[in-house]
Structures are given as structure tokens and as C-alpha cells.
Write a protein that binds this DNA or RNA. Structure first.
Lengths: 343, 343
DNA sequence: CATATGAACTGCAACGTTGCAATTCATAAT
DNA sequence: ATTATGAATTGCAACGTTGCAGTTCATATG
């Protein structure tokens, strides 16, 4: 009953519109139509116009299976989705970013979730041997990430959210973690902290090493104590307990840097329960990615990574890679965006 | 140098393994191989064994494009991902649930993100006219959801996370919101509340109506005041302000039910800032889906929906629907799981 | 007038799969 | 020995696309 009807839906006797349909309508051969639609320059303008008009009028969209069978091109990009909970709403932001970037292209997004501790080389192996996508996006890379190795070896297009330490270069778009750590340390030092602590997670990632190295260097330069707390395997409840214990500890640090939203929430919960006021007894800077934390802790300093934008950037790099661009031109770093509160 | 090498990778001269390869190896015809692999019962056991062995040894996997072109079956299920931020990590949980359920099947998951306010009928229209998936999962349905209407009309397999009010039945797996509201009201009444408030979002969803109706009914039964606060369009910061104002309001409710994690965080932030202690001056019950809130507010009552499980349930329903099961058998409700704290 | 040139278009095969119609071949019935 | 029966297997066409090798046909060249 709605007056808003889909314009695309044709009269009635619906059969799929294929090249053949257009050929019949225009009176041209199938080959000509195909050629024309792909921009064959040997065709005369009149013919090309005729084909284009017919294609548009009929709502022609190339059949993915046909194209794929013939050319091997899947027009699919695959996102291998890490199970990590560190960054809140990481999946949604990343996927929306990708979705936004492929809008208007022929690409579809296939998502392959990974589960805790599962070896994701299987996933890559599957994609590689079944050519199930034209390119892959992976996240949370390690220094010698076996997935990266596999894809380099078989010269398969991919981008990583995260760097590696391979000699052979590859496409990536990464958060500038070194800069993150440096900014955070400087800020804490500037606020007068003398004994700071970095609460950090998964030591298997390149990110971990980048942050830690930069953290130590910058703290040394500022001449302040730099401790490390490895929160990797801890559950949120355990992390909360850490905060609580820290609140009561005699040698409590006067500044904390936290690289994960999940751990920030848990830690702050514990500290607060222990009577410590963030911004007073302890300074805290966290890495912010989701918009939830600023609502929760509007008065806290943070440094932001825009995951939506990262998804877009990764996708654009990948598409260029698929089109054959040199990997050296496909490496970008995302500058951390500090959000300092009242000074 | 790792000793763990992929077993699948064949000797060297790599060409894709197709039916033809198996035919050559076994000395059978292509048709026989195809028939056998699909379990042709007219073949003699010896032949079938031979084919199966060869297929396994060669690591045969049917080519998706070939199958799709021939049969029209895409072996893809599409998730239309709502942009809503209400439930934290909804996307990840849902996708992992789906991923878990399709593990071992031939299905891939294609994710189509939606953006704020965008009409998602286009998305459905695209899937429908290009047969780009065998089935669709949609979420956050409205009572007369046009997407549902479209898919019913074209008899296309789908499941929704959320019910509708159409006369024609369709497959769904939904959270039992009525039960959620009833449980929450009873709990608050049991704690002595006389004037409660439901903070709720998007009034375009069926869920909204189900909750509100049940909420009112149950409050009436308990003989207590039942207010409604529509938090739909509000940003987290605005929601926080609402909490702050509420803290200072003379007629502040003594119990609050919140249907969204995002709004819970913001509201509690505001209330707390305003000096109100949750569980003392005000009772609060929220809908919990992510594991973050219990860490943040360990002492607060909540009612849980397991989104991971929902993803799995939706997928199983959808696959049965694709296989032709009657929609009447594909409607399930997920019982809310109350988590009451210290009494 | 015969032939070369080139512009504009077309036929055909192939990608990997499936399902029907047809074929082979041994055995049983006449 | 011929034919019918049926079990086991195979050939062929088709799904929609692309790209190469032609073909057609008008015009230019000798």
C-alpha cells in the first residue's frame, strides 16, 4: 500500500538481466555488449551509448559468479576479526569504516571471526588455497606474524592493522603507538609524576613492543621511574582487583598509562573503590577508541585512535594493493590525538 | 624453519584441484565424480570410496563460483549490521556467534554495515535483486519493518533479531523483552520502590513497545508509579546530563530500569556525579549484554541477554529456513537471565 | 578491378559445476 | 541366440562472463 515503490523492480515476467538480455534488446552480440560495458575503445560511440542506456534501463548488474568463474576475481575482501576485547566496539567501528570505504565499489565484505587462542593461520591458509577473497585485512599483528609470512610468501594482497618486523615490506596502516607512549609520558611528567606505570596487554603483538620501548625511552629522558604491569591474561574482575590492591599499596605509582579501554575501566573501577581519586592522587591517561569512556570519565586525559577511520584507511590501501600498487607506497601511520582535560 | 608445515600444501606444480583433477586421477568421468561427491546412490560403493579418497588426498574443495553459477546457491549468509551503539560490543558478539554456528558448514558470512539513519531497504533490495546471499539476518526490527515485508513478499529466507506485527509469520529469535520488564519491575517493587522510571530508546522498534507495555502492566499490578523517559535521540553527554539533573530533581524516582548499556553508563555517570549512590538512594536495573558493565558496576542488578548465543541461534534458524523448514517452527524467545546482587 | 587496410563487430571456447538423457555392459528372461 | 532388464557410468548442455581469433564490410591503395 505504500506509495514508495522500488523503482528497480521491472514490470513482471522477471528473469535475471544478463548480458544476453541486453544483447537481445539492443540487437548486438553478446560479446559486443560485454566489451562495451567494460569500456572497449574499438566500439563506436553510438554503440556504446546504446548499450549503456539499455544496461541502465534494465538495471543490469554483472553476475558475481560469472565474473568470478571466468576471471578468478571474487570482488570480496575478507576481514579476519580478532576476538580481543581490549578496544570497545572495535568490530563495529572497523566494519563500518570498511563498509564506508567499499560503498560504491563492487566489493563485498566477508568477515571471519577468530576465537580466543585459535591459530588463525588456518583461516589464512583457507583463504589462500581457495582464493575466497581478493584481499585480506588482519589486525593485532605480531613481530613475526605467521599470517603475514604466509601472505607475503604467496604474494597475496593484504593489509595489516599493525606492523611487523619482517625484512620484506608489506602494506599496513597502524596506530603510532610510539607517539602515543611518548605523548602520555610527557604529559604525566609535565603534571609532576615521578613514578609511573604502564598497564599493557598482549605481549605477542608488535604494538606491545613499540609502546614499551617508546615508554621506557621517554621516561628515561624525563628522568622518571617507569614500571610495567602486564595485564595480558587477566579477566576484568582480576584487573579490577589489581586496581584495588594498587590503591592500598604503599608504593603506588603517581601516574598510570593504560593501553586498553577494557583494562582502563576495570582498573579505574578498582582504584576508585579503593578510595583513590583519578586526577588527584593518581594521574591516568588511557587510549580511547570508543566514545564510551569519555562519557564515563569526562574529566580524564586520553589519547584517541579512530578505528572507523582506520577501517577506511586499511580498505583503501588494500584496494590499491589489489590493483597492483607497490607495498612501499601503502604504509601509513595514524597520529594519536591527545585529549587533555582541564589543566 | 618451523616444523609445523601445512599438510594441505601439495608437492609443487600447483593447479587448482577441481572435479576434473579427480576424474583424471581416478580414471572416472567428470560426471561420475561430481555425482559421487554429492552422494549418488546409484554408484557402486567401490567407486564412491575411490572418489572420496582421491578428493581427500588432493584436498578438493568445490569451487564456489562454479557451484553458484550452476545452482544459484551462494553459500553466503548476510548480516545487516545496525549502527546502533546501545549494546556494547554487539557487533563482535553477534558475529562471533554466527561464525561459531557456521563453522564446519560451507557458509561464509557477509556483513553489510548500516549507517545512522540510512534506509536499509536499499540493502535488502540489493540482496534480493542480485541474489547475493542465501539468507539474511537483520536486527532491531520495527513492528511494520519494511525490510521484513520485502523479504516476506519475495519469499526470501531470513531471520530477525526482533519480532514484528505482521500477520504473516516469519522466522525470528528475540530477547523476551516483556519478561525483562516484568522481572525488573518486580525486583524494584520488591526492594520497596514506589515510583519508578524506565529509560528507553528507539521507539521505532518492536522491542520498545514490548518493553513499555509489559512495564506498565507490571507496575500497575504492583500498584506503583511508572514513568517513562525517552532517551532515543540523546547523545551520551546529554544522557549524562539527564542523570545529573535527575540527581538534583525533587521528584526523583526511587527505581530506574535501563534498557541500554550505553545509556546506563551515561546515566549512572550523571547520577553519581550528582551525589546519588546507586543501590542506596536509587535502585537501578540494566540490561546487560557485554561483560563490561558488570566490571564497572559489580554491585548493580542486571538482566542479561547473551548476544553471542543469539547469533548462534539466529544462524541455526536461518540455515533451517534456507533448507525449507516452516517458519512457524523457527520462532524462539530468549529468556532473560537476572543477575541480582546482594539482597 | 583486385587487393590491402582498418574499423566495427561476432563466434567460440573456457572457467567449474550439475542434472538430464543417453550409453555401456553384464546378466536374466525368452 | 536374441532381447529385455537394470545397474553403473558418461556425454552434453547450461549457468554468465571474458578474451582471443576471426569475420564482415566499407574505403583506400596499387
Amino acid at each position: 500500500m505504500s506509495s514508495k515503490t522500488t523503482t528497480k523492480t521491472m514490470a513482471s515476467g522477471n528473469r535475471r538481466v544478463t548480458l544476453k538480455t541486453i544483447a537481445e534488446v539492443t540487437g548486438l552480440s553478446l560479446s559486443t555488449v560485454s566489451l562495451s560495458l567494460r569500456g572497449g575503445t574499438t566500439l563506436k560511440q553510438e554503440t556504446r551509448d546504446k548499450v549503456n542506456e539499455a544496461a541502465k534501463a534494465l538495471g543490469y548488474v554483472p553476475d558475481r559468479a560469472g565474473v568470478r568463474l571466468r576471471t578468478g576475481k571474487t570482488n570480496v575482501i575478507a576481514l579476519v576479526l580478532d576476538g580481543s576485547e581490549d578496544s570497545i566496539d572495535f568490530a563495529r567501528n572497523m566494519i563500518q569504516g570498511i563498509g564506508h570505504a567499499i560503498k560504491g565499489t563492487r566489493y563485498h565484505l566477508s568477515v571471519i571471526p577468530e576465537f580466543e587462542g585459535q591459530s588463525s593461520t588456518e583461516t589464512i591458509d583457507y583463504i589462500l588455497s581457495n582464493r575466497t577473497a581478493d584481499g585480506v585485512i588482519i589486525t593485532h599483528t605480531g613481530p613475526r606474524d605467521p599470517r603475514v609470512q604466509m601472505m607475503i610468501d604467496s604474494d597475496f594482497p593484504f593489509v595489516s592493522h599493525g606492523r611487523t618486523e619482517f625484512y620484506t615490506p608489506h602494506a599496513y596502516h597502524d596506530f603510532h603507538s610510539e607517539e602515543f607512549a611518548a605523548l602520555a609520558v610527557k604529559r604525566l611528567a609535565g603534571k609532576g609524576c615521578r613514578d609511573i606505570m604502564l598497564v599493557i596487554g598482549d605481549d605477542s603483538t608488535t604494538n606491545y613492543h613499540n609502546i614499551v620501548t617508546s615508554y621506557r625511552k621517554e621516561a628515561a629522558r624525563a628522568g622518571i621511574e617507569a614500571r610495567l604491569f602486564e595485564g595480558a591474561g587477566l579477566s576484568p574482575a582480576e584487573m579490577r582487583k589489581v586496581g584495588l590492591d594498587l590503591a592500598a599499596a604503599p608504593n603506588r605509582p603517581d601516574g598510570i598509562i593504560c593501553d586498553s579501554e577494557m583494562r582502563t575501566i576495570a582498573l579505574v573501577g578498582g582504584l576508585t573503590e579503593g578510595g583513590v581519586r583519578i586526577g588527584r592522587e593518581v594521574q591516568l591517561i588511557y587510549k580511547q577508541t570508543s566514545g564510551i569512556l569519555p562519557t564515563l570519565f569526562p574529566e580524564m586525559d586520553s589519547i584517541r585512535e579512530d578505528v572507523f577511520a582506520a577501517g577506511g584507511a586499511l580498505t583503501r590501501l588494500l584496494l590499491r594493493r589489489i590493483e597492483g600498487a607497490a607495498v612501499e607506497d601503502l604504509q601509513t601511520l595514524d597520529e594519536p590525538q591527545p585529549h587533555w582535560r582541564s589543566d
